[in-house]
Write a protein that binds this DNA or RNA. Structure first.
Length: 427
RNA sequence: GCGAGCAUAGCUCAGUUGGUUAGAGCGCCUGACUGUGGAUCAGGAGGUCACGGGUUCAAGCCCCGUUGCUCGCCCCA
């Protein structure tokens, strides 16, 4: 039997799987809550293609070898290099420019929900095809109020999802003015302590000094604490921006931790960076990550556009939603139509059609089962009511409606059945 | 790219220092009950013990390799 591709997963009805993160009911809950949050804050949905020119990501994400290695890339028939999107910020910025949205008055606030692809080794909360929801605020303003409002929205969303055990980590990573000088001083400080640091740190000292700050090795910690912190080396505009951002969070009563080690690897990220981490997710515990990327549009060859956004892994959100938030009964059918004898089948099909037109979730037994078997099926799929149609019922025009929970059974006319089910739905 | 753990029925798992024909619960099918589900009882189907090789009189069990899953490292846009 052919099996699924490594690092992918099937999301299916909960009654077919006990793995919580593979249950469609959980996914729908998360997606609906996210859409509702985005709607309330005035975000509009955008759908960009799953494939883009490889160049978009090479320029947008950087052409470092690791990044390229982890993209699914292929040559199209005409030789053009195409990649499955590994993230959606660059595609959204591309679409923004391509459709001339910079001519709009005011901010353009977009959200997306969709699959992304990275060829990494799968582990808990990390897949090769994974879903992200995210927003991008694009326009001419870089007001800290944009950032605070997005985080306020996330605060509301997480609460709505019942995900309470989270930390908001924030940092400012400076801009083109202050960051280069900081990195130079950081490097210097690292090299002064090079002998005491672990092998990994020694390697990173040259290639990615910001990442040294992130080292988890016990023996490094004391030395890392002595390294200069970027948020203490900000130029005045960056420092003011960060101060205002923090003031606006405090004004909203949103708790945060300043995490000086929180960095972004890419050059176009600047100033505000943030992360929301969740408990009980294992090693991959980042639920949401975001930041400001004012330089990205120009790197892609577009006009100067200021941007701020976040992306969140749906799988990790789904894993974090408590069971109590999910109502598995909501998707169960309201009515199962069983028939006695072959003559009643055509009658049942027509009746089922009329009931559906009235808005009733109806499953008609198509297999011509004996009544006993039909009711057993109705029971196992969790139908709330069964309708029994036989010769007697057809003659009298009233059908036996059986409450599958209580076993109570009444003979009702068609209109009464519809009323009963609609009434029941109020509870 | 590196490392560790795991792999027996649809699912969850047992399987003795290697010993004959492969086990349970749940689920599924049939019947007890030809127009009434859930409970009970009786019966039944369902297995390349992940795959390939090796050791042995004998392998689900031991050894090697492969694949897959899981978790961690690297990386994390």
């Amino acid at each position: 039997m052919i099996s699924r591709v490594k690092g992918t997963q099937d999301v299916l009805p909960a009654r077919f799987t006990s793995k919580p993160d593979a249950q469609i009911e959980r996914w729908l809950f998360v997606e609906r809550a996210a859409r509702e949050a985005f709607r309330r804050y005035g975000f509009e949905e955008i759908r960009t293609p799953i494939i883009e020119r490889t160049e978009l990501f090479e320029r947008g994400v950087g052409s470092e070898t690791d990044v390229n290695k982890e993209m699914y890339t292929f040559a199209d028939r005409d030789g053009e290099m195409i990649s499955l999107r590994p993230e959606s910020t660059a595609p959204v910025v591309r679409a923004y420019s391509e459709h001339g949205l910079f001519n709009q008055a005011g901010l353009v606030k977009l959200f997306y929900i969709g699959p992304q692809f990275r060829r990494e080794r799968p582990q808990k909360g990390r897949y090769r095809q994974f879903w992200q929801i995210g927003v991008e605020v694009l326009g001419q303003s870089d007001a800290p109020a944009i950032e605070a409002e997005v985080i306020e929205m996330l605060d509301w969303l997480l609460n709505e999802l019942g995900i309470t055990d989270t930390d908001l980590l924030i940092n400012s990573i400076g801009d083109g003015q202050c960051r280069p000088a900081y990195i130079a001083r950081l490097k210097e400080a690292i090299f002064e302590r090079l002998g005491a640091l672990c092998g990994n740190c020694r390697l990173r000292a040259e290639t990615n000094p910001l990442r040294v700050l992130d080292c988890k090795v016990e023996s490094c910690q004391a030395y890392l604490a002595e390294l200069p912190r970027i948020n203490e080396s900000l130029c005045e505009p960056c420092a003011n921006h960060f101060t205002e951002f923090r003031r606006l969070l405090a004004q909203r009563g949103i708790a945060y931790k300043i995490e000086p080690r929180l960095v972004r690897g890419l050059d176009y990220y600047m100033r505000t960076a943030f992360e929301i981490t969740g408990a009980s997710l294992g090693a991959q515990n980042t639920l949401i990550g975001g930041g400001r990327y004012d330089g990205l549009s120009e790197i892609l060859g577009g006009q100067p556009v200021k941007g701020f956004g976040f992306a969140s892994g749906v799988e990790r959100l789904v894993m974090s939603v408590p069971d109590s938030k999910i109502n598995l009964d909501a998707t169960k059918p309201e009515l199962f139509v069983a028939c006695v004898g072959p003559e009643s089948r055509d009658y049942a099909y027509a009746l089922g059609r009329r009931l559906r037109a009235e808005g009733v979730t109806t499953i008609v037994d198509l297999e011509g089962r004996k009544l006993k078997k039909a009711l057993a099926v109705a029971n196992s799929i969790g139908a709330r009511y069964s309708l029994i149609i036989g010769e007697d019922e057809i003659k009298s025009g009233s059908y036996a409606l059986r409450d599958m929970t209580t076993g109570e059974q009444n003979n009702l006319r068609e209109s009464e059945i519809v009323d009963t089910l609609k009434y029941r739905r109020l509870f």
